[in-house]
Design a protein around this nucleic acid. Structure first.
Lengths: 165, 165
DNA sequence: GTAATACTTGACAGAAACAGTAGGGTATTA
DNA sequence: TAATACCCTACTGTTTCTGTCAAGTATTAC
């Protein structure tokens, strides 16, 4: 249950590749395509939306490509997925668009709401920088948090709290 | 993103109705259908799977219906959803069935894994009893946890920790 | 024993979402 | 002006979802 679409998955992986070139080296779609094994045409769709959302910038012509529009520590996984898949909405009830007819009588309404909020909170704490440095991976494996205390931003330490649950 | 299927949603709501009759009063599909506004035929499919999973028991003939096979505090939302939608698997990579070809090279693999585990942990802590007593709802609204200390099981207090994040 | 109640099972079908392709266009550089 | 590289829209096959339908089995009450 709760499958993430390929658009979201590829989007995060593409952003990871773009982030690696930050702040100077643009990466072409072709390169992302080869490294992440996703077709150029499909990536075009995905990156287009992320560009319109202001997460990345594009440079046309030879030597061009894509580059982050903010620093990696300021781009969360949540912001990427929100653009590509919309906000977390476990039920149509909770979709910002269509309203719920039976909010009050629905016992499960607050359950789904709470879960959705927790997921969003989690995704907001993980940034592209975490993906690049691998801090996140170490923490999720249960390694010592205090091994690299000075590199921990506030956001990162929040992510750790969540992961240690 | 991350929409829950109606099967899962209806399943939980149906289980809530069945739980209300525990341990003595069986409830018919027809009654659940009317209370939760879901067709009888669709509920039949759903309840069948929950019965085969051992969560509920059925009694045929007049006066029959469905009844829980365990006490409400021993049936978690996770166990219901797992039967109806399978385990949380944000990517096909993480599906217990199909294996991942590029586990090691995939930077995001552990991210989705960690998120999935967190969601499962959350759903395991919420039980049908929480739904019935409404304890869960109070907590999720940020009310004092210590207001009813004696009714708190270990599981419930875990859920609260999660909700307070 | 028979009629009414209620669960059991498998097949099927329309709708929606997903995943990806195709084919044209525009801007920039050398 | 040719090559590079991004830009945009439309479309289509596949899968999943969301149910319905129809026929069957078991139990109870009388």
């Amino acid at each position: 249950m709760l499958r993430l679409s390929t658009k979201g998955q590829y989007g995060v992986r593409a952003m990871y590749e773009i982030a690696r070139g930050y702040p100077e080296t643009p990466i072409t779609i072709k390169e992302i395509s080869e490294r992440q094994d996703v077709s150029v045409a499909y990536l075009e769709q995905i990156l287009n939306r992320l560009r319109k959302a202001g997460l990345i910038r594009s440079i046309k012509g030879p030597g061009g490509g894509y580059i982050l529009d903010k620093s990696p520590e300021n781009i969360s996984i949540a912001s990427i997925l929100n653009e590509l898949e919309g906000p977390v909405a476990l039920t149509s009830c909770l979709d910002p668009e269509g309203g719920c007819v039976r909010v009050d009588s629905c016992v499960t309404h607050l359950l789904w709401k709470a879960l959705g909020e927790q997921v969003e909170a989690f995704l907001r704490t993980i940034t592209l920088k975490n993906l690049i440095t691998g801090d996140f991976l170490k923490v999720s494996k249960g390694q010592s948090v205090r091994a690299k205390p000075k590199s921990q931003s506030i956001k990162e330490s929040k992510a750790m709290t969540l992961l240690k649950l």
